[in-house]
Amino acid sequence: MATSAPALRTSVSTPAWARWANDHRKWLFAGPAMAFVAVLIVFPVAWTVYLSLTDAEGSVRAEKELTGAANYLDVLADTSRFWPAVLRTVEFTGIALFFEVVLGMCIALLLWRPFRGEKWVRVAILLPLVATPVAVGMMWRLILDPNIGFANQVLGWVGIPPQPWLAGEGSALVTTAFIDVWQWTPMVVLILLAGLTALPEEPHEAALVDGTTGWQRFRFITLPMLMPTVVVAILLRGIDAIKTFDILYATKGKGGGSFHEVETLNVYAYGLSFDYNEYGVASAVLILFFLIIIGSMWALTARRREELS
């Protein structure tokens, strides 16, 4: 009785439009965001697919013709720019991800148990993470400058000859990958730390009673339990690392440097679009790039999906 009376009163006193709004609240709430996504994301992606099948180039208002798969065939046969860019993307992402996950795991384990001064270490971890990537690129450009940089000065103190860093044809890509490691390892630390804190204590304590070593407890208890979080960290970081642009553009400029030393797929697609106005070819590169990203995500989560099904 007490529960039905107020409900009755509302249904009488609410105006028709309000009742309509409540009945359709699912799409009333989700609709505007979905419309935004449709207009500004789904439609552009569809257009990119269309552009990749045309000879669009030059001015954005120029006439264009459908050329079918021609752009894709050209791109896939291009061993001077496209395939080296694929290799560089794989190398950059691989190096960055590997060190970010390994170092991230080590640092997360160091921070796991509470200690004095924890607050200050957490601040230090947060700062690189929120720093503007372009500014980070410029900062490292000064530190790693072969002539005036602090990095070579430090190497000099311990008797190591100066390195070319970003200026070297072979070393530039690895150097930029390590700038990425500096900025984004903290992100992996935070994710793994959240995972570690959520782990149950009992298995760990039981293993302690059984007289296991620290390494054994990590290898056979902590790591297997933490694995889902590690996969999430790899996924989140991998998606961003493979698309890195700001650091590469800030340190090496257009086209990934004069010899395209750091020209990854993203940098290549950007250059094709806005330095050469080759919109058709650029779109084909972007679609292939997108397929590579989706493919690697799919491969990475394959085992997990198997476990779930």
Binding site: M34, V42, V45, L51
Partner: peptide
């Protein structure tokens, strides 16, 4: 309302390379 498919469409934006949107936007 567990609109998983709609959510997936919005979250796909995290995966799409920004350049692929820039070209049509610029157009």
């Amino acid at each position: 309302f567990t609109m998983n498919r709609s959510a997936l469409v919005v979250l796909m934006a995290r995966v799409i390379p920004g350049v692929s949107l820039l070209v049509p936007w610029y157009y």
